[in-house]
Amino acid sequence: MNKKSNLLFLIILICFTSCDKKRIFDEYKSVGQTWHKDSVVSFSFSQKDTLKPYNLFVNLRNNNKYPYNNLFLIVELEQPNKQTIVDTLEYQMANAEGTLLGDGFTETKESKLFYKEKYQFKNSGTYNVYIQHAVRHSGKITGVENLDGILDVGFRIESTE
């Protein structure tokens, strides 16, 4: 790359990172070609502010290989005192016609899914988040062994201000 290309790339990068003023934490992890039912995606972050509320999100990148209209997740939020909040969540991933929801111009879509709205952290310190899929076939007890179409799982914290 020449100097002009490098400068243009740097300006674009700065614009994208500086325009996201609400972001407190934002990280993605790849789950590979399929998301195994026993694979837990984990995130760790430090939180000092116990006064302001924050919005917490599970972010997903998925493609047309995702075969379902909805997605079930088990999300655990482990606090610094080792107390853990466990939630089983359901998200709609496609409309009635089967078209994937989410943002993106290609077959890969990015979904920003509310986990907790206006959540106030009770303790300062290190928090851990564990996310696992809990997708089941209708009428079956055992989970889907390998979930196709989910590429990356993310966790995001935003300021509500």
Rank of each mutant, 00 (worst) to 15 (best):
F43L: 15
Q33F: 03
V41R: 00
K37Q: 07
N70M: 04
K65P: 00
N59C: 09
N64L: 07
N69L: 01
K21A: 11
K22L: 12
T34N: 14
Y28L: 11
K52Q: 10
L71T: 04
T50I: 14
D20Y: 10
F43C: 15
K52I: 01
V31C: 10
N62Y: 11
S46N: 13
E27C: 12
V31P: 07
F25E: 08
S39M: 05
K48Q: 14
L60E: 08
L56H: 10
N63R: 02
F25R: 10
N70L: 01
C19V: 11
R23P: 00
F45M: 15
K37F: 01
S46H: 11
K65R: 13
S18W: 14
G32H: 05
F45C: 13
D49V: 08
K22T: 11
T50P: 05
P67L: 06
V41M: 03
S18M: 15
L56K: 08
R23N: 14
S42N: 14
V41S: 00
P53T: 11
K65G: 00
R61Q: 09
K22M: 07
D49P: 06
E27W: 04
Y28K: 06
Q33N: 12
F45H: 11
V58Q: 04
N70G: 14
C19M: 15
Y28M: 12
N64V: 05
P67W: 04
D49I: 09
F72A: 04
K21S: 14
S30N: 13
D26T: 08
D20Q: 15
T34L: 08
W35Y: 02
Y28G: 03
V41Q: 02
Y54R: 04
K21N: 09
N59D: 14
N55R: 10
Y68A: 00
Y54M: 03
V40P: 01
